[in-house]
Design a protein around this nucleic acid. Sequence first.
DNA 1: ATGACCGCTTGTATATTGCAACCAGTTGCA
DNA 2: TGCAACTGGTTGCAATATACAAGCGGTCAT
Lengths: 151, 151
Amino acid sequence: MSSHRSLCPINLALEIIGDRWSLLIVRDLAFADKRHFRELLQSEEGISSNILAERLARLVEAGILSKSDDPTHKQKAIYSLTQMGIELLPVLAQIGIWGRKHLPVTKESGAPAAKLEKGGPALWKQLQAELGKTHLPAGETKAQSARRPAG
Amino acid sequence: MSSHRSLCPINLALEIIGDRWSLLIVRDLAFADKRHFRELLQSEEGISSNILAERLARLVEAGILSKSDDPTHKQKAIYSLTQMGIELLPVLAQIGIWGRKHLPVTKESGAPAAKLEKGGPALWKQLQAELGKTHLPAGETKAQSARRPAG
DNA sequence: ATGACCGCTTGTATATTGCAACCAGTTGCA
DNA sequence: TGCAACTGGTTGCAATATACAAGCGGTCAT
């Protein structure tokens, strides 16, 4: 996918995460603490294994996730959010807030989104910092924001 | 679309806007002031007419857009954002901010997103208020909307 | 050694998308 | 009146993506 439909940042983002599964995978990594293939396969929405495999590969290639070996099991892979992935949290939050407000969400299913709305950006940053600790290689913090206004 | 994969607000939202075109249509309505089919067809990304037609119908049915007659032309339809659609602006903003930061955006193509980031939620609310004036039926504000007083 | 578990892959059927051509009605202009 | 340009879409077809179920070689604890 090296040719883009346009260079609009919204379009470029949608070319990666513009489907019905990618953000749910990020959600499960960020909020449900799922790190293994078989865990992610148990998503509430019932993703198929081939779709999950393809999306994980895509998200890794895009730089949103990273894949590493689990030292306790030679066949297990650990999927982690990268800094780029962690920074999708405000996107997830706004989508959740919008969905809770306008779509047929039950009280329980909307509770996490309600929390995100009440806490606001301050809470999001706090959550991002925690995700950094559990997902990023030791030593890397969210401080290193490398801008890339390339052309 | 009456059966949902889950009641998670993020999932419910993605069932509607989780594709590569829907949010671009909302973007063009919100930022490029495109209101007619043929205008939207000229999107920078080159959407096909059948896809555009299907998405417009879907977004109208979902309550994100509304469709009305253009008094100046019997065949023209005017597409407008509803309050629900206007409230997608923070979602668009966060996606744009994320895309500008992490994807190969040029300085020009990233300028609107940069503005949205710099202005922050205060700017978004201001933009939403302006969209309300041009897209919502007269009298309806961003607060709870009742039916128009009289015709 | 054996059965559960690991991240996938492989069919196969169906749904979605992309592309180009086309349509009937409307409008402005001559 | 005639006609070209324009209106919001449809239609047919090929390519691609998705869903579902089954299976695969290897690993691990017992």
